[in-house]
């Protein structure tokens, strides 16, 4: 797995995720990266990667909306000027 630090360089994070606990995709997977968003500007996140942790918090066992809320709050908080993602290319979740 890889730790990716995404600076908040744009007003949006700019990723779409699918998956979460109790779905076919138990950990959130990146399905889109929007051009011009912070994630795209960072250049290190890729479509297909699985998000294991956000700012050190595990997404394991979290349902989709809970995982999405955690990521949204990590981007919104003014406590940090970046969001740390622990990602993997592999579907390790089960």
């Amino acid at each position: 797995s890889t730790l990716v630090r995404v600076p908040k360089s744009a007003s949006t994070l700019g990723i779409a995720i699918e998956g979460g606990a109790n779905t076919r995709q138990p950990l959130p997977r990146i399905v889109t990266i929007q051009r011009g968003g912070s994630a795209h500007n960072c250049g290190q996140l890729k479509v297909g990667q699985i998000i294991l942790e956000v700012n050190g918090v595990s997404l394991r066992g979290r349902e989709h909306r809970d995982a999405a809320r955690l990521i949204a709050e990590a981007f919104k908080t003014k406590e940090r000027d970046h969001v740390d993602f622990l990602v993997t290319e592999f579907n390790v979740a089960l």
């Binding site: 700019g14 779409a16 995720i17 995709q25 989709h64 909306r65």
Partner: peptide
């Protein structure tokens, strides 16, 4: 295991 996985629902997609 495979059968169980097939019964799980697909996920919604959220843009962040």
């Amino acid at each position: 295991v495979r059968e169980k996985r097939l019964t799980l629902p697909p996920s919604e997609i959220t843009m962040l």
